[in-house]
Amino acid sequence: MLSPEVLILLILDGAILLFLTLSFFTAVLIVRYFDFSKDTPLQYYLERRSYLVSVILHLSFSLKIPLLFYFVYTLDKLSNVIPGAMCAAGVITSNSYGVALLAVKVLNIYLFGLWLVANREDFFTKEYRFTKFKFKFFIFIYLFVVGEFILELLFFKSLDVSKVVSCCGVLFDATKNSTLFSFFLLDSKLSAGLFYLSFFLLLFFRKKIYLFSLLTLIFLLFSLISLIQFFSPYIYQLPTHHCPFCLLQKEYFYVGYLLYTFLFLGTFLGVSVGFKKFFLTKEDKSWPSLLFDSLYLLVVTFYPVWYLFKNGVTLF
């Protein structure tokens, strides 16, 4: 597939990869030779390179977020040319790399974010306390970035305009146990119940930082499942429409952007408090995370409540 959007995605991700590869070599050097007590030219050089990596990561991170949305936009646009696909969901499941690619893309944004948290803490200590740690962590992240790029190449290479794919109506249809998403197919009401339960657990254990971080991951998982299974039909006002991508379209007032921003920000902050405590020995409050989680919960809860209020019945 050679559409301008695909080309741009590949070029920008390629540029990011190029600069991260540069950073990777710096990271290896720093992990091996960094020693703040020394007064050698090498040490000064490494300290300065550390800033370069920090700039690159900042820029990559701030580019990766819009690129994720742009990726979904590209898929939406490609759904016009791929027979059967009505939105991004059809395109992404049209070959076996799509779902993994999207997952890695989201994961990488989380990882970049955590790296920047570590970087910030490092620059706030007067003795470069976390420099070695953050570069070890970077080497770990780098592997995922390479993985993402390979997956992206494979994904776009194997997109086939002549193959008929399923639209989101089929993909998320609970009665036809058909697709990759079968993992997500919990009963609608059950998924909603687990979603609210995990939120209350978060609220309850907000002081126990490690548990809180762990629960945040569970909350994220149930949020996504319940969004597909329970909430999205209310948003679309159509009991059979279960797609997590159509939310981003104009017909639904772009509510998806709001929802995903709240959800990802909230859960990122949740993971980051645990990360900070464990690796950076810094205690942070969990309330910013809870705030965004709650905002997400409020917006998403609004839809079934509103539906009930208007129509007097529930969908499930």
């Binding site: 703040f36 300065r48 620059f123 007067k126």
Partner: peptide, 14 residues
């Protein structure tokens, strides 16, 4: 040490 602060061991930004 200047004004109570060890300035010989500061990262560049500090």
């Amino acid at each position: 040490v200047v004004d109570g602060e060890i300035v010989s061991k500061l990262p560049e930004d500090f």
